[in-house]
Design a protein around this nucleic acid. Structure first.
Length: 512
RNA sequence: GCUCUGGUGGUGUAGUCCGGCCAAUCAUAUCACCCUCUCACGGUGAUGACCAGGGUUCAAAUCCCUGCCGGAGCACCA
């Protein structure tokens, strides 16, 4: 009885058990834990990036996990740009689209895209309502003074202002009548709350710098994350929130606002930070941005940058990254993502479809480039495009006007080496003398098999995380197009980036 | 300092709520062998973990206590 038959049989005998059994089965192949109180078709989540730069790998975790939950629960997710800080974490106008591209690359599509900077009036309205209820007050304490009072659990004098005054002063904030730092609107929580992080927090502050988006450039009074995000999560119908542990107290702060409005707080899961091994560069948008500005990195997709764009340019599929991220789960402890697991996923995805090719590196690390004439053999070698799929055909690599190999692969004088896909040659003083194509030389006599290229093959630059390597590729490289993947035999997988028959072509190294 | 919150092999994860089927799952990693005209793929095998100490119990990764170590918040950043 196969599983289908078994299913039918159960449906006949005990239809009420079928659901139960199936839900158990399902539980087994979900790498992510169940969401609390989640029902199919009624889950709505959001990814809420600040568009102050393109995404690094850590950001991809949010989209990966939320997108996976969306598929699993047949739910929805929206992308909400929390771009309410025109100054300290100033939005980058290019990042909005870059982030949406990254989400698409990961294989997901938001059901809706909103920008907080389009919704400032909505936040004002809710602030007015909050003030009306006595849930907020305007405060002109200097930051440090308030901090001291708060830490000792004491209210500041502004806390007892009457509602009318607060309302007036808030309108003055909205109208931009204060300078940056002069006035804020605080939410009245519990000034003696045992957790100092929850005591009267700022909901709105003044910012002199205009927002980079033209549509929002007129605002000077901006909401803080705790207010904006809290209000939006409710208004946008979010049922489940996933975010970093740094925002753990945020949920509690927002809880006060929700209580004033009589709203129910969404389910929330907090997870730890992700680090990715294999990178020297700190994974923060601002650090990467600085390195680019200083010229240390070529751009957001430099192979050394720990960004989504970089992985993409290296030919790593979004799916490989998503799977690795999902396997990390949602635990509250910090996790290290081993990049090797992303590579393993990607290899699995692309190996069968990826053609093989030769690339001979001209680098001291591999003994430099050595050129030799081949005498006495066929005109060309014909290795298969893929060893497991002979029917895809063979490559045609001429040995004229000579071949290049990596110095480390050059045998001693008088010794033999097997030019892969061509045959066995003996290294004489200044040439490779063809010996034959009897494979027993390799199988039984220990002759090494090496990759090679015609001396006049296309120049290729391979960009890797450890820097660039130039060298010579086999002529067939010129037949590929940008975005094609190749496996350089004995080197690893790479993405074709630029094909230039007359100058230098470029490929990006993906992984071994 | 105050307040949260965690600790399963190199990495991640399952198991922890409801103690026994856990001498601990799966993946990745590493090593070895096999396969091989690639250092890829595939096959076989091996390596490797319950933070520590007490307690409860016939039985503890799981419950309790203490300790140790880590992460986060206490911003007019998100």
């Amino acid at each position: 009885m196969d599983s289908e038959q078994r299913r039918e049989r159960i449906a006949e005998l005990a239809p009420e058990k079928l659901d139960e059994i199936e839900s158990e089965d399902e539980g087994d192949d979900h790498p992510l834990p169940d969401l609390p109180n989640a029902e199919d078709g009624e889950v709505r989540m959001r990814v809420a990036p600040n568009p102050n730069g393109p995404w690094h790998i850590g950001h991809a975790r949010m989209a990966a996990v939320i997108g996976t939950y969306k598929d699993r629960y047949d739910g929805e997710f929206i992308c909400r740009f929390d771009d309410t800080d025109p100054e300290t974490k100033r939005p980058d106008l290019d990042a909005y689209d870059a982030i949406l591209d990254a989400i698409e690359y990961l294989g997901f599509e938001p059901d809706d895209v909103v920008k907080a900077s389009d919704r400032v009036d909505v936040y004002y309205d809710h602030a007015r309502e909050l003030i009306e209820q006595g849930g907020a007050y305007t405060c002109s304490c200097p930051q440090g003074e308030f901090s001291d009072l708060k830490n000792s659990g004491e209210a500041c004098p502004h806390r007892e202002k009457d509602t009318e005054t607060v309302a007036e002063e808030f309108e003055a904030m909205v109208d931009g009548e204060y300078e940056s730092g002069e006035m804020v609107l605080r939410v009245r929580t519990d000034i003696t709350h045992k957790n100092p992080a929850l005591r009267d927090f700022v909901a709105f502050r003044m910012i002199d710098t205009p927002h980079p988006r033209e549509e929002a450039a007129q605002y000077r009074c901006w909401p803080m994350l705790d207010f904006q995000s809290g209000v939006d999560d409710h208004l946008l119908g979010i049922t489940h929130i996933i975010r970093g542990i740094d925002l753990q107290d945020s949920a509690k702060r927002q809880g006060f606002v929700y209580d004033y409005f009589g709203w129910e707080y969404p389910e929330v899961v907090h997870w730890g930070h992700v680090q990715v091994d294999a990178y020297d560069v700190s994974m923060s948008t601002s650090t990467i941005g600085e390195l680019i500005a200083e010229g240390e990195l070529d751009g957001w997709d430099d192979p050394r940058a720990p960004t989504v764009a970089s992985l993409r340019r290296r030919g790593i599929r979004g799916e490989a990254l998503v799977d690795a991220m999902v396997e990390l789960g949602t635990s509250t402890s910090d996790v290290d993502l081993a990049i090797s697991s992303v590579y393993a996923n990607n290899r699995e995805l692309i190996d069968d479809d990826t053609d093989r090719a030769f690339f001979v590196r001209d680098d001291e690390a591999f003994g430099g480039l050595v050129e030799r004439q081949v005498v006495g053999g066929p005109d060309a070698g014909h290795p298969p495009l893929h060893p497991d799929f002979e029917d895809r055909g063979r490559r045609d690599i001429p040995v004229d006007p000579g071949v290049v190999v990596e110095g480390d692969d050059l045998p001693d004088h008088g010794d033999r080496v097997w030019l892969k896909g061509y045959g066995c040659v003996r290294h004489t003083r200044d040439a490779f003398e063809y010996v034959g194509d009897d494979i027993t030389a390799v199988r039984e006599e220990g002759v090494d098999v090496v990759h090679w290229a015609p001396a006049d093959g296309p120049e290729l630059r391979l960009r890797t995380m450890d820097g660039d390597v130039t060298g010579v590729a086999e002529p067939g490289y010129l037949d590929y197009e940008a975005d094609d993947m190749l496996q350089f035999e004995r080197i690893g997988f790479a993405r074709v980036d630029r094909v230039d028959p007359d100058g230098e072509s470029v490929a990006y190294f993906a992984h071994p």
